[in-house]
Amino acid sequence: MLLVLDVNETLLDVSALDSLISDVVGMPGDIARRIWFDRMIRSSMAITAAGGYVAFGALAAAALRDVAGERGGEVSMAQIERLAEGIRTLPAHPDVAPGLRRLRADGHRVVTLTNSVLEVAEAQLRSSGLIDLVDAVYSADEAQRLKPAGEPYRLVLEREHADHAMLVAAHDWDVTGAALAGLDTAFLGREGRMPFSAIAEPTYVARDLLELADLLAAN
């Protein structure tokens, strides 16, 4: 099976940015990071729904300025550069490397699809030691549309010459977009998250990649 894996939060641990964002925003790190990430995603969805496109890195910087500004703070260029470097060097979740090895050993083709531009995605996978554990790297930037719009998912199917695939992600909005684009889906419950209850359930729900590998092997 062709497995299409999201990167940020799904494979890589974004909590590594907690202290950096906390210093900028002036609130506890995990709270600041979640507010920043949610602002970034909300902005990307609004722009995408309106038919526009802004590179994900620009949205990350803008979201940090917005969240800091709401608390009366300003963000320097040096802080933006540290955020960019932090994103490029995020560590993998502990289950990811063994999970990817298991999935590939079980015969699945494993590719990644992220909203980050391709150069950043490749840098992330090299830094985290995952680049040799995936078969291909794709970016929504190549479609000039951010997930959960359908174009990025369809781009992967076209590039892979595949009629079918499964999207694996830790985000309910990503799973929703993939399902509406015709893919099967697997939701990873990072940080205790649950998928949307307003739509059809994901094909699989697992705690991490190793549990997902077990579920796929059993079916």
Rank of each mutant, 00 (worst) to 15 (best):
M45W: 07
R207H: 10
A121K: 09
V96F: 02
G51V: 04
I31K: 09
G99V: 10
A217E: 11
D141H: 12
V110C: 02
D38G: 01
V25W: 06
A68C: 05
H164Q: 14
R154T: 01
L5G: 09
N115S: 07
L90P: 00
S128H: 02
D38K: 01
V25Y: 10
A213K: 08
L215Q: 15
A60V: 06
S116I: 12
R39G: 08
A84W: 08
R190C: 05
I21Q: 06
P202G: 06
I80F: 05
A198I: 08
I80D: 08
R154L: 13
R42H: 00
S15R: 15
T203Y: 07
A213S: 14
I47R: 01
N8F: 03
G99M: 03
E9P: 07
L83G: 11
E142L: 10
H164C: 06
G51T: 09
G72W: 11
A140S: 15
D172K: 11
E9K: 01
L180N: 09
H161M: 07
P94V: 03
L5C: 14
Y153G: 04
A62I: 07
V75W: 09
I35Q: 03
A218Q: 14
L11T: 04
A140H: 08
P202L: 13
L20G: 02
V117M: 06
L64M: 04
Y53D: 07
M45D: 07
N8R: 02
S19M: 10
L216R: 04
A105K: 09
V24H: 08
T89E: 01
R145I: 04
D18W: 04
L180A: 11
L17W: 11
Y153R: 01
R207N: 13
A32G: 03
F56R: 02
S15N: 10
G52E: 13
H171E: 05
G107T: 04
E158V: 01
G57R: 06
G129F: 04
D13E: 09
G51I: 03
L215C: 10
A55D: 15
G150K: 04
L155M: 03
R42G: 13
S44Q: 02
A218L: 09
T89M: 01
P28M: 12
G51S: 10
E201W: 06
P202K: 13
I47Y: 04
R145N: 02
V4L: 09
G26C: 12
L2C: 08
V205N: 10
Q124S: 06
I21T: 03
T10Q: 14
L90W: 03
M40V: 08
A121Q: 07
A218Y: 00
A162H: 06
R207E: 11
G26L: 12
W173M: 05
I41Y: 02
P28D: 14
G129C: 10
T89H: 12
H161Y: 05
A169N: 07
E191I: 07
D95K: 09
T89F: 06
I80V: 15
T89G: 00
V54T: 04
G57Q: 02
F196L: 03
S44N: 00
V175E: 05
A123E: 13
R193V: 03
V110P: 05
I31Q: 15
R207D: 13
E119D: 14
G86S: 13
S19R: 13
A165T: 00
A50T: 13
R34V: 05
L215I: 11
E158K: 04
N115T: 01
V14W: 07
D208I: 00
A61Y: 00
L155R: 07
A217S: 14
N8S: 10
